[in-house]
């Protein structure tokens, strides 16, 4: 009989000194993941973290698992090759908003639509940190940075809307100030078969300090953070006084529960095939008056890419048997030249 040794956070910590800036939100994400993996019964040798370039991309060096620190933007592509050929592994992709949405935007959307079995964790700090403070594809319009002294003219991406639009089967958001919520979301993402996309609001205290303070700050959470819970009415605010209801225009609207009645409040259903509600929820909070939802927007079942390929291969093997070179070489007409 083999006894399964219960691992701890320490088992998942590598011997490398963590070198993020003191006070960086990355520390709390790293701790959350290192603490979570033993809970998931993850095995070090079957776990791989793959990253691109950026502050977040240093993550694999700090995990005592297998890891690849690749090149800027390409982590989802590197991870795709690994996840497809090695379905036995737990593949995690770590990156920032610049890495995943700017230089690597193409790979992210294609990995999501193909539903390749991996967890994609995007640390969103709305700034380029490693290059010392330029606006990123999630920075707000008008953002003054080193490369935009007169304010950024770029319309930012909404990462959740983008992931839903890219046919992602699991889309969630959490933030670095709430370890329990981070772990809840990451656990669900890990359970999901296929590509899981998790956006984590992460504070860069050097180049974009307090970017999410108005939402995730302790005194603001009650009014500005809407926590999505599957199967529960979508409520927020003090005493859950407000809710989300369907709007006759086709979208959603914020209602006072006391006025409109609980029966009008939408019940969250992440498993809905139709992505309309998830998409509508992803648009909430673009204006500062509205609350910003966190939690799981979408969690649907669709066969993952690796499994589809494996099925194809098994069908071929069943029909043709294992490939034989001498047959392959004679698959076209041949002739013999005698001595």
């Amino acid at each position: 009989m083999t006894t399964i040794e219960k691992l701890t956070r320490k088992d998942f910590m590598s011997d490398q000194e963590v070198r993020w800036c003191p006070g960086c939100g990355d520390y709390s994400i790293l701790a959350a993941v290192q603490l979570l993996l033993p809970e998931l019964n993850a095995e070090k040798h079957n776990t791989v973290f793959i990253s691109g370039i950026g502050c977040a991309a240093r993550f694999p060096y700090y995990m005592n698992t297998y890891g690849v620190h690749s090149i800027h933007g390409r982590a989802p592509a590197v991870a795709s090759g690994l996840a497809i050929t090695r379905p036995d592994l737990d593949v995690w992709v770590i990156g920032g908003d610049g890495d995943m949405l700017s230089i690597g935007g193409n790979h992210l959307i294609h990995a999501l639509r193909r539903n390749i079995n991996m967890v994609v964790v995007m640390f969103n700090n709305q700034i380029y940190g490693l290059t010392k403070g330029q606006y990123s594809p999630t920075s707000e319009v008008g953002k003054v940075t080193k490369s935009s002294p007169f304010g950024s003219a770029d319309q930012p991406f909404n990462p959740i809307s983008l992931a839903i639009g890219a046919e992602a089967t699991f889309v969630a958001r959490t933030h670095d100030m709430d370890r329990a919520h981070m772990q809840f979301v990451l656990k669900k993402a890990h359970e999901h078969k296929g590509a899981s996309f998790v956006e984590i609001y992460q504070n860069c205290n050097v180049f974009n300090d307090g970017a999410f303070e108005s939402i995730t700050g302790k005194e603001n959470r009650q009014d500005k953070l809407l926590i999505l819970q599957d199967g529960e009415p979508i409520l927020f605010g003090k005493d859950n006084a407000y809710g989300i209801a369907p709007d006759p225009s086709g979208g959603i609207r914020i209602v006072e529960v006391a006025k409109e009645g609980m029966e009008h409040v939408l019940v969250h259903d992440a498993k809905k095939k139709d992505p309309s509600l998830a998409f509508a929820l992803s648009r909430l909070g673009i204006s500062n008056e509205e609350p910003r939802p966190i939690g799981i927007f979408r969690d649907i079942e669709r066969e993952d890419y690796g499994t589809s390929l494996l099925t194809q291969q098994q069908n071929v093997l069943q029909k043709q048997g294992k490939g034989a070179l001498d047959k392959l070489f004679r698959s076209q007409s041949t002739w013999v030249v005698e001595e």
């Binding site: 390409r74 592509a77 991870a79 795709s80 790979h107 294609h110």
Partner: peptide, 22 residues
């Protein structure tokens, strides 16, 4: 296994990822 990637970069990156896996 053949993988028609989204671009040339993903094509080579996925091959390298597969090589990491053996």
């Amino acid at each position: 296994t053949t993988f028609q990637a989204e671009d040339e970069i993903a094509a080579v990156c996925s091959a390298l990822g597969a090589a990491f896996g053996g």
